[in-house]
Simulated scan of single mutants.
Amino acid sequence: MTSVRELVAGVLGGGVGYEDGLDLLTVAPAGDVDPVLTAALFDAVARLVGNGWQPAELQRVVARRGDAVQAQLVVDAIAAHLRGFAARAVDPRWRAQAEELGAAVWWGADDDFPAQVVRHRRTDRIALIDAFLGALRVLAGLPPLELLIPPPGRVAREAHAPGNEAMLHRVRSLLAKAEATTFPAEAEAFSAKAQELISRHSLDEALLGAGDAKVTPFARRIGIDHPYESEKASLLDAVARANRCQVVWSPEFGFATVFGFDADVDAVDLLHASLLVQAHRAMARDEPPGGKAGRARLRSFRQSFLIGYAVRIGERLAEADRAALADSVDTARLLPVLASRETQVREARERAFPRTVRGRGFRVGSEEGWESGRTAANRATLR
């Protein structure tokens, strides 16, 4: 007789049909099934964490390829993995992602974890076993990723310098005001001041780090959510280029990897998130009516809006960065430093992604959306 462990392995390996396996698991004793499903899920997540996957990335990819129930099971498995490590053994960035997902151990013994989920979330047991198998299938197909944040139990990267944290706090405050105001002129003023702070700080950091072998580029993965992912990724690329970073977009996983120096990557992350909020607000204000008849027109408008917004944002941020460089008191010394840093960033990207494909250009299907997006970009960012 086939054991539950062999049955689950057969379903995941393709030797047993999915529906047949699900039927057999639902009629098997819970005392036999629950420990196997729990161990399989927790072990799969622990393996992927060791292979470079971060909490937010695992949750996102399972939600994209599976559903919300499967994604929540993965969050529980992240909490189970985290409980085995002392606080000092967990990188703060890794822990922050887990906490943002709400990863916390709420159950008792692991052996009957599925039964506790049924009671705690008031779900159907058959649907839950289906969710376990679905999540396991998604996790089984994920490849290793570059290790960007040390997983629990490994040495953490040094924290940001105090000056960088102070700058980021001021930028967050300005961008929060830009997102909150309903007046375009105010949003522009706040965003302009934020970019001014970012550019000046970045140039100062470049000079301070010149010649220091310990100051090297690193990478951060930034999630891009449905819908219009490619258009949103183009906005991230525009912001990154203006701040001396490079981006590799991985649509199959729903994230982009940003390569650059510490302060620059922080700036890209903050600016992209804020500009996306402002873009959605402006797009909702300007878009044509939807409904069944106008659905295709509305989709074309939104795609064209985001493309126009990204292009104009890139132009204006680049203008602001050039202005900051021109205002620098030590431009002659800065130019070779910036050229060297650009080379280092490109080499870091090529090491991580030796084979990349240049993305296809976008087709603008709505002139109305394109012009509206560029107008919104003029209002959202600096001169």
Rank of each mutant, 00 (worst) to 15 (best):
Leu7Cys: 06
Gly10Pro: 14
Glu19Arg: 14
Gly21Thr: 03
Thr38Ala: 08
Thr38Asn: 02
Val45Gly: 09
Ala46Pro: 10
Ala46Thr: 11
Asn51Thr: 07
Pro55Leu: 13
Gln59Leu: 08
Ala68Ser: 08
Asp76Pro: 06
Asp76Asn: 06
Ile78His: 03
Ala80His: 01
Arg83Val: 11
Arg88Gln: 10
Pro92Gly: 13
Ala96Val: 06
Glu99Arg: 02
Ala104Val: 07
Ala104Cys: 01
Asp111Ile: 12
Phe113Glu: 14
Asp124Arg: 04
Arg125His: 09
Ile129Arg: 10
Pro143Tyr: 00
Pro151Asn: 05
Pro151His: 04
Ala161Thr: 15
Ala161His: 09
Ala161Glu: 14
Gly163Lys: 10
Arg172Asp: 12
Ala176His: 11
Glu186Gln: 13
Asp212Thr: 13
Thr216Gln: 15
Ala219Lys: 09
Arg221Glu: 00
Ile224His: 03
Ser234Cys: 08
Leu236Gln: 01
Cys245Asp: 03
Val247Met: 04
Glu252Thr: 04
Asp262Ala: 07
Asp264Thr: 02
Val265Thr: 06
Val265Phe: 01
Leu271Cys: 06
Ala273Asp: 07
Glu287Met: 14
Pro289Arg: 10
Lys292Gln: 15
Gly294Lys: 13
Gln303Gly: 12
Ser304Arg: 11
Phe305Asp: 02
Ala310Val: 13
Gly314Asn: 05
Arg316Ile: 07
Ala324Tyr: 00
Val329Leu: 12
Asp330Lys: 01
Asp330Ser: 05
Ala332Asp: 05
Ala332His: 07
Val345His: 00
Arg349Asp: 02
Glu350Tyr: 02
Gly361Trp: 00
Phe362Trp: 06
Val364Ser: 01
Gly373Cys: 10
Asn378His: 13
Arg379Asn: 07
